[in-house]
Design a protein around this nucleic acid. Structure first.
Length: 377
RNA sequence: GUGGGUGUGGCGCAGUUGGCUAGCGCGCUAGAUUGUGGCUCUAGAGGCCGUGGGUUCGAGUCCCAUCUCCCACC
């Protein structure tokens, strides 16, 4: 039984508490992306606990191809498999329809993929996605959707969104069936619906209105940050979020930069996830309140300062920029790991601080000072 | 000492019968990256081609000398 309680609303920015079978989530929240049940960059669930993060995100498609969701189920689900007892959100595999374009064929029933691991043919539709996510036993399962390319024309977007809506009904029905089975790992698994519609206001709004009627425990805005400008993205949030239920969490999928997240929070978004902190960390790009640093740059060779003065992360508490740069150049895994840890800490802390600001009704000043700071470097 | 081979950006190499601004890989310097295939992509810097002569309209390419390093033989 989930329960969403709004703690405060500062203009449109929301701070809420979402209670789940795996503990409470305080929003806004950044969810740490661990696609294959691990945060890339040698970051463990022990580390996630140490830097005090709330939610891990895993991927249905990737875990289905390897190791296989039946295997995870034999371990008792993702929570036991990964030794993470806090909430886990699983993405449905829908995005892979988009990101692995070229390996796919979309039909009404679902999508045929060729596995990126061994090339074998895989079929996934709404029912399959729900079955896999049920095996994984995540706290929140995402609906199986299609994320149309940003350059798709209106007609394609209309057809795609209509099909995604039909898929959502099938997801809901299948999840209800799965949650009632005795062998199901998490019988209170939640299904979040996903809003689509490209950059076309009317399609977004009509879709948001229709899926809101399904009374799902949460809703996501998908299909953003896929090539449109930041202004277009913010505009879509401006017009769409008000058409999603106010008493349910709103999740902006795959977004984004620290600035994107602050803009999203300002528009009422609760949940975020993005590969940036981990991917950029692996590439030596680290976030600070003054902007982003590329530790591969020669200027850090003799820099004995931490990544960011005053940061409480394990990297900054123990090591210098110069040492981490050396590790990165030497391709030592520790270099990536320290950068990823720092970035995850930075993201989680920023969103946590945003919550504090909302609770104190000073989010607008908070956001303004953060954005000004990011532009210093 | 004799014979053979070698010498081209930081490293490893291409450079055809001598022909226009000498290439490539790695490295280096920067930049991209938004529901992640530990990637990938883009741009940039850096070489008087061991040294000194010579032949030629023109030499990294041919000739002579010299030095370096490697191999074999005495």
């Amino acid at each position: 039984m989930s329960k969403y309680t709004i703690d405060n609303i500062d203009d449109k920015a929301k701070a809420a508490t979402f209670e789940t079978v795996h503990g409470t989530i305080q929003t806004p929240v950044f969810m740490n992306v661990g696609t294959v049940a691990a945060i890339k960059g040698a970051v463990s669930t022990m580390d996630l606990r140490e830097i005090d993060t709330q939610v891990m995100l895993c991927n249905t498609y990737h875990l289905h191809v390897r190791p296989g969701d039946e295997i995870v189920a034999k371990f008792g689900g993702l929570h036991k498999f990964t030794n993470w007892d806090r909430p886990i959100l699983t993405d449905s595999g829908g995005f892979q329809v988009f990101s692995l374009a070229g390996l796919r064929k979309i039909k009404e029933e679902g999508v045929s993929f060729n596995s990126h691991i061994d090339g074998r043919k895989i079929f996934m539709g709404p029912e399959e996605s729900m079955q896999i996510q049920s095996h994984l036993g995540s706290t929140i399962a995402m609906a199986f959707d299609e994320c149309p390319p940003s350059k798709a024309d209106r007609k394609y977007v209309e057809q795609s969104v209509a099909r995604t809506e039909r898929w959502l009904l099938r997801c809901k029905k299948e999840m209800e069936r799965l949650n009632s089975l005795p062998e199901t790992i998490n019988k209170e698994q939640m299904l979040f619906g996903i809003n689509q519609g490209g950059c076309i206001d009317e399609i977004r709004i009509a879709n948001a209105d229709r899926i809101s009627e399904l009374d799902l425990p949460g809703y996501a805005v998908g299909g953003l940050a896929v090539g449109e400008t930041h202004e277009e993205m913010y505009h879509i949030l401006d017009v769409t979020v008000p058409h999603l239920p106010q008493n349910k969490p709103v999740y902006l999928m795959g977004v984004g930069t620290p600035a994107n997240i602050l803009e999203g929070i300002e528009r009422g978004v609760d949940f975020f996830d993005c590969v940036y902190p981990s991917r950029n960390g692996r590439h030596g790009h680290v976030y600070t309140n003054q902007g982003k640093l590329n530790l591969f740059n020669a200027q850090y060779e003799l820099d004995d300062r931490p990544i960011e003065e005053g940061c409480g992360c394990p990297a900054c508490q123990n090591y210098s920029r110069g040492y981490i740069r050396h590790l990165l150049k030497a391709k030592e895994m520790l270099g990536m790991r320290l950068c990823v840890l720092h970035n995850l800490y930075f993201y989680n802390k920023m969103v946590h601080d945003a919550r504090e600001a909302i609770l104190a009704n000073r989010f607008s000043e908070f956001k303004k000072s953060k954005l000004e700071g990011f532009q210093v470097l």
